[in-house]
């Protein structure tokens, strides 16, 4: 059964014309978008199963000789559609700065140390119930040049496919209670407070492993509803 893709949830997304985030000024389209009917080109999409993932891709603390510096964390959650149904066997790609707030990327010039034991890239495929889990270290905040004294709150980038071209999304996961939230124009481009809060992970003591790592839950909701109306409310 194919899902359907209503448009009513799309206002959760930020507008590309968000001038407080300076990089948008010359990159946001100025013409109105053209409303596209959903054809087979949009309702289909590539599916990447376990072949896309290698052993160890989901543990970013074990990709080198030694262990990375920083606060060890477990990031876990479920990928769901707009009906709350799990999105199984879908690929998640993540990337992040190290604990000092420095990316491995060649163009990152922030004068904070690289960590020879941390790259900061991972992949995982959700299980049959849409669950995923990464082990990593908490990324540091870092400065950027959007405005005077601009700092990005700590975040992990997430890239997901879901079942179709329409469900494709790239987003960022943040950490609860970050004092930089009010000052970050990228986070604030999500103007609806409820939607913005969905970008913040939740500390989870039950997943936190004693003497080992803190647990953070981040559930992700992708576009799509079940094609057939549900008779009974389901819970799981």
């Amino acid at each position: 059964m194919s899902p359907i893709y209503p448009r009513d949830g799309l206002n959760a997304h930020p507008l590309n014309a968000s001038p407080e985030y300076k990089s948008t000024l010359k990159r946001a389209p100025s013409q109105p978008l053209i409303l596209l009917p959903h054809t087979l080109s949009e309702t289909s999409g590539p599916v990447f199963g376990h072949v896309a993932v290698q052993a160890g891709d989901s543990d970013l603390t074990r990709q080198h000789e030694g262990e990375p510096l920083g606060e060890r964390i477990i990031v876990f959650g479920r990928v769901l559609d707009e009906d709350g149904r799990p999105v199984p066997h879908t690929l998640i790609e993540i990337w992040q700065a190290n604990a000092a707030g420095r990316y491995v990327h060649v163009r990152d010039q922030h004068p904070a140390p690289l960590d020879p034991n941390f790259t900061g890239a991972g992949r995982v495929v959700t299980d049959a119930e849409g669950r995923y889990r990464f082990t990593t270290v908490k990324p540091g905040a870092y400065p950027w040049r959007n405005h005077h004294n601009a700092w990005r709150p700590a975040h992990i980038h997430f890239s997901l496919f879901g079942p179709s071209f329409l469900s494709r999304v790239i987003t960022q996961m943040y950490f609860p209670g970050d004092p930089l939230f009010p000052f970050d124009p990228i986070f604030q481009t999500v103007t609806d407070e409820k939607a913005r809060n969905r970008l913040i992970s939740r500390f989870d003591l039950a997943t936190t492993e004693p003497e080992w790592a803190l647990g953070y839950q981040f559930d992700i909701v992708l576009r799509g509803r079940n094609a057939t109306p549900i008779e009974e409310p389901h819970d799981d």
Binding site: P14, W95, V104, A121, H157, Q172, F187, K194
Partner: peptide
């Protein structure tokens, strides 16, 4: 049981070592 979509955020400038990692020796999807 309606759930709100997870909002999109920018890919940022530093994605290559994860998403297009050829120059970093990574495995390309």
């Amino acid at each position: 049981d309606d759930l709100g979509l997870t909002p999109s955020q920018t890919i940022g400038p530093f994605f290559a070592y994860a998403l297009t990692p050829r120059a970093y020796g990574g495995v390309e999807l």
